[in-house]
């Protein structure tokens, strides 16, 4: 299974739309795209995970790296439209407490 990554630059807002599976094979590709975006100046990186059907802990690793680098550069990272199975991973690992996650326009976690 593959991962498709689409990046839309909307001024300071970078919208990253993902589709497919995030696992040990596709995670490096996601990291390569995501990290540079979090290092641009005054960027708000919004990652749309609606089309992600599967993610394992390697994917969490990428988002943790992205969060750390976002903080380092004083930027903002937000994850939106997570499917239940994917959301559960963030919930169990306590990451919903430190990463802004929105599902169906309801903020489930805060910074």
């Amino acid at each position: 299974m593959n991962l498709t990554i689409d990046v839309e630059h909307n001024g300071a807002e970078k919208i990253v739309s993902l589709s497919g599976e995030i696992d040990a094979y596709t995670a490096p590709k996601l990291k390569e795209t995501l990290l540079p975006l979090t290092q641009e100046s005054e960027a708000t990186v919004i990652v749309d995970l609606q089309q992600i059907t599967y993610m394992d802990s390697t994917g969490l690793g990428v988002f943790i790296s992205a969060l750390k680098s976002t903080k380092e550069y004083n930027n903002t990272l937000k994850l939106v439209n997570l499917q239940d199975r994917v959301y559960r991973l963030f919930k169990i690992t306590g990451l919903t407490e430190i990463i802004a996650i929105e599902t169906d326009s309801t903020v489930r976690g805060g910074m």
């Binding site: 943790i64 919930k91 306590g94 990451l95 407490e97």
Partner: peptide, 9 residues
Amino acid sequence: AEGLVLGVD
């Protein structure tokens, strides 16, 4: 028993 993974914060 929710808690943050080790090594993040």
